[in-house]
């Protein structure tokens, strides 16, 4: 398959937007985490993702122009990563779903020789840690108190509908999407079961539920997130910071 520069740029945008948007959401936790040690942990993950985003967006153009001057419909991130933080359980469920996906994706890309191999080789170590962090907390919240079990189950159920979209092939990203999905279901299912949680049964594909973020169709909270993220940059056209 011949991969043109444009295809690579579009693919970089999709992966870069995932990292950018999730990093932003995690950044919203600063000063609000349940315990100080977790302030440090969440910030580490956010910084890893922001680093990935900057490399990826730079493959597609100017990182700041892309981050700050695109309209909502031009963003290519998954709907999963734009979902609001909710309580700590929602944040952990989002982390578990996404980091398990990112780990599979980057492991595959790092093993190949495509344009994303160098980034993936570095990022796969970072996301392995993100996944471990999410797994540890899923186990503790799922198998902690009755309250935490219920919250964690609700969070897993609520975000489940956004997980099908992750395995929609991205043009320009050389991956075994179907194989990744099988592996993802297996590994996430295993963590949830160990955490005494029920693997959600709701739909993961179809209609608005999935397959939209990559095409530029987002959920309501995303517009507000972008408004906040972009307003200062847009208020001073052409300025350097």
């Amino acid at each position: 398959m011949t991969v043109t520069v444009d295809t690579t740029a579009a693919a970089a945008l999709a992966l870069g937007d995932d990292a950018l948007v999730l990093s932003h959401r995690l950044g919203e936790w600063a000063g609000h985490a349940p315990v100080l040690e977790e302030e440090v942990a969440l910030a580490n993950i956010a910084l890893d993702l922001l680093g990935q985003a900057r490399v990826l967006l730079s493959m597609a153009g100017d990182e700041d122009e892309l981050a700050y001057l695109r309209e909502e419909r031009a963003f290519r991130n998954l709907q999963l990563v734009e979902q609001p933080n909710g309580d700590f359980a929602h944040t952990i469920a989002r982390q578990l779903y996404f980091s398990a996906y990112q780990q599979l994706l980057y492991a595959g890309l790092a093993a190949g020789d495509g344009p994303f191999a160098p980034l993936a080789a570095k990022a796969v170590k970072e996301v392995a840690y993100h996944r471990d962090h999410a797994e540890q907390w899923t186990l503790r919240l799922g198998d902690g108190t009755d309250v935490s079990h219920d919250r964690m189950q609700r969070a897993c159920d609520a975000l489940w509908r956004f997980t099908g979209e992750m395995f929609q092939p991205v043009n320009g990203v050389d991956a075994d999407w179907a194989g990744m999905e099988t592996a993802w279901l297996e590994s996430v299912g295993e963590v949830l079961r160990r955490a005494t949680l029920t693997v959600p049964e709701g739909p993961r594909t179809g209609a608005w539920a999935a397959g939209a973020g990559r095409q530029g169709l987002h959920t309501e909270p995303f517009g507000r997130m972008l408004a906040e993220m972009q307003h200062l940059h847009r208020s001073h056209p052409g300025a350097s910071w």
Partner: peptide, 8 residues
């Protein structure tokens, strides 16, 4: 978690 917190 102590080990992970220490790492972070």
């Amino acid at each position: 978690l102590a080990l992970r917190n220490a790492r972070d």
